[in-house]
């Protein structure tokens, strides 16, 4: 499969003189991929997603979509191919769910154009694909966390809708972070379905190793702004890599029948790079 979205040796700092938050990262997302990005807090996952979406430009290196450098595309053209689902969506005003989904059509409309029948149909299909058709006219702020997240995913689908001729990617930043177990499961199966049935290429940053193990076919492990390991999930998700990534001893269990991988964290290792534990002098003997 050909590469759809490709970060080629990108580095990024938020301000001149500030430290690099992403450093020499190369990531390839093939057409149809479902990739997970794992790493501790502050490892650069969110920044990498911003670079991949083109809302930030790398300090060095480049991002390509298809064969075109992303920074040669207008924001509007880029947004037709790359949609982002942010960690949390907080509204200043009381929009209805359908209005949020229709906002996804923004890059397809002219300055004075109003959403037409096609846009509305695409929005309704996106609601249907995320199982939220019944929430269409509800106020967004009245929805539960899981429902909100599904509406925001529907908005991303509406944004990509009808650009199937051109390749399209959804980037999701910790989509299950604030959700309980039931909603986590729901979002996970939704993402799998969207990837398999609707062919949406996805990269998902997450702290949930078990979700990543169950739905992502490939993983990118990030630490301190660099890629620690990348490849097929079964090869990358090893006890050794988990230790290097999080400074945590973990049991990684592979179910022989189903092939499911489960990760059970056992204990924290003090590697010295982390904050010292209370009482310790931060100086491992």
């Amino acid at each position: 499969m050909r590469d759809l979205l490709w970060a080629d040796n990108v580095s990024f700092r938020y301000a001149a003189g500030a430290p690099l938050v992403v450093e020499g990262v190369t990531v390839r997302l093939a057409d149809g991929a479902l990739a997970g990005i794992l790493g501790p807090n502050g490892s650069g996952k969110t920044t990498l997603l911003r670079l991949l979406s083109g809302t930030r430009r790398p300090t060095s290196g480049r991002v390509l979509i298809g064969d075109r450098p992303l920074d040669q595309l207008s924001r509007r053209d880029a947004a037709r191919q790359i949609a982002v689902v942010p960690q949390e969506t907080e509204l200043a005003f009381e929009y209805r769910a359908i209005e949020i989904v229709l906002m996804g059509r923004h890059p397809h409309l002219g300055v004075f154009t109003v959403e037409g029948p096609d846009d509305i149909r695409i929005a309704q299909e996106a609601l249907a694909a995320t199982g939220t058709s019944h929430l269409s006219d509800r106020f967004f702020h009245e929805l539960s966390g899981g429902e909100k997240q599904r509406i925001v995913i529907a908005a991303a689908l509406a944004q990509l809708g009808h650009s199937f001729s051109a390749p399209s990617v959804a980037l999701l930043d910790e989509p299950t972070a604030s959700l309980d177990l039931g909603y986590q499961l729901e979002i996970s199966s939704l993402l799998t379905r969207l990837n398999q049935d609707h062919g949406v290429t996805m990269a998902i940053s997450t702290h949930d190793l078990n979700m990543a193990a169950s739905i992502c076919r490939e993983l990118i492990l990030m630490r301190d702004g660099r890629v620690l390991a990348a490849g097929p999930t079964s090869e990358v998700l090893t006890p050794d890599n988990v230790r290097r990534l999080y400074d945590v001893e973990a049991d990684v269990h592979v179910n022989d029948e189903t092939g499911h991988i489960t990760v059970l964290p056992v204990r924290r290792i003090d590697s010295g790079s982390r904050l010292p534990a209370p009482g310790s002098r931060g100086n491992p003997a």
């Binding site: 809302t55 947004a79 982002v84 969506t89 509204l91 005003f93 906002m103 890059p107 944004q159």
Partner: peptide, 16 residues
């Protein structure tokens, strides 16, 4: 509409 949802979100939807 998009700005009121958030700058980062608006940027990813194609707003300069």
């Amino acid at each position: 509409n998009l700005l009121s949802v958030g700058a980062e979100a608006a940027a990813s939807r194609g707003v300069e």
